[in-house]
């Protein structure tokens, strides 16, 4: 996979607060890349530096291996976390205007707008003012303005905040269509579950620093299936004496076991089954949330190597 975007040790300090601290990452072309982290981790500042809205204090942003030229902005579609459009303009006016300042001609914009309005079921509102639309419709309209100029990089900041479930499905489909066309998608969120469903690659950041990045499947493999849930009848106190079990958390209906590295889950299952009647035994994949907590607590920095990217 070819690299599209590369951040090299970018840094931004506001007063005494380090917003982004020597952050480096590599976004493969045509991938969905998630920048994840809690609120205030430096996601929006990173995105603003990518788009040259603010200049980094140090480090550089490279697109296809080069410093981006002045036209780079025209090739980016940005959906900010805080959304809004010109309320007094009509739909067609606002879409045309935002397409034009992205370098589209008026004809190109007009040629594409009907298809989009159709797809988003906003067609009948074409000549209405933005302020007449409901909040959900305005979100869809804003999404159109993000894509109308056919960007090669789409940046979605907290995409799903404020979207209703129907629109989430609609927009998810459109994002996957864009990915199929070869568009690179940068996705920032603090909700790990969303990233888990959509992203090919992720980068976890906390306090402006990268704590973990790489291909999502590689990350999950590295952190392994290190816990198991068991539902069983009878006394469970003997379980903690079994070798390779490092911890037991009891819940009302089941217990969760923390397994040692390289533990043989088959052996463990056998040992328990000898003593009591098991109704369910399930090896759990760690969620991104668990991984984030674990990594953030340990304070270490992980980079899951990806041979395809780091040629």
């Amino acid at each position: 996979m070819q690299e599209y975007l590369r951040l090299e040790k970018i840094r931004k300090v506001y007063d005494s607060k380090v917003a982004v601290d020597d952050l480096s990452l590599s976004v493969p072309k045509g991938s969905i890349y998630g920048i994840l982290g809690p609120n205030g981790a430096g996601k929006t500042t990173t995105i603003r530096m990518i788009m040259d809205i603010i200049a980094p204090d140090a480090g550089s942003v490279l697109v296809n291996g080069h410093h981006p030229d002045g036209n780079f902005r025209n090739r980016v579609g940005y959906l900010p976390e805080e959304r809004g459009l010109y309320k007094k303009m009509t739909l067609i006016e606002v879409v045309t205007f935002l397409a034009e300042i992205k370098g589209c001609t008026r004809q190109e914009a007009h040629g594409r707008i009907d298809g989009w309005l159709e797809k988003m079921s906003l067609r009948e509102y074409k000549n209405r003012k933005v302020e007449e639309l409901s909040k959900g419709m305005q979100q869809k309209l804003q999404f159109i303005t993000t894509l109308i100029h056919q960007p090669e990089l789409i940046i979605l900041d907290e995409l799903f905040s404020g979207l209703d479930p129907l629109n989430i499905e609609l927009i998810k489909d459109i994002i996957l269509d864009e990915k199929r066309r070869g568009t690179t998608i940068l996705f920032s969120t603090h909700v790990m579950e969303q990233a888990e469903k959509l992203c090919d690659f992720i980068c976890l950041i906390n306090h402006g620093q990268k704590v973990l990045d790489g291909r999502l499947s590689d990350i999950k493999a590295k952190f392994g299936k290190n816990s198991a849930q068991i539902e069983m009848d009878g006394d469970t106190s003997f379980v903690k004496e079994i070798t390779d079990i490092e911890g037991v958390t009891e819940f009302p209906n089941y217990i969760e076991l923390k397994l040692a590295k390289n533990a043989n889950s088959h052996e463990i299952l056998k040992k328990i089954a000898d003593r009591v009647n098991i109704r369910r035994f399930q090896l759990m994949e760690p969620s991104l949330y668990d991984i984030f907590i674990e990594v953030a607590r340990s304070g270490a920095t992980y980079s899951v190597e990806n041979r395809e990217v780091n040629q």
């Binding site: 902005r73 940005y78 900010p80 809004g84 010109y86 992205k102």
Partner: peptide
Amino acid sequence: KNSRVIEVMVSSVSS
């Protein structure tokens, strides 16, 4: 600023 259009604007043109 209030309607946050500014966010989209600064990603398209310089301030």
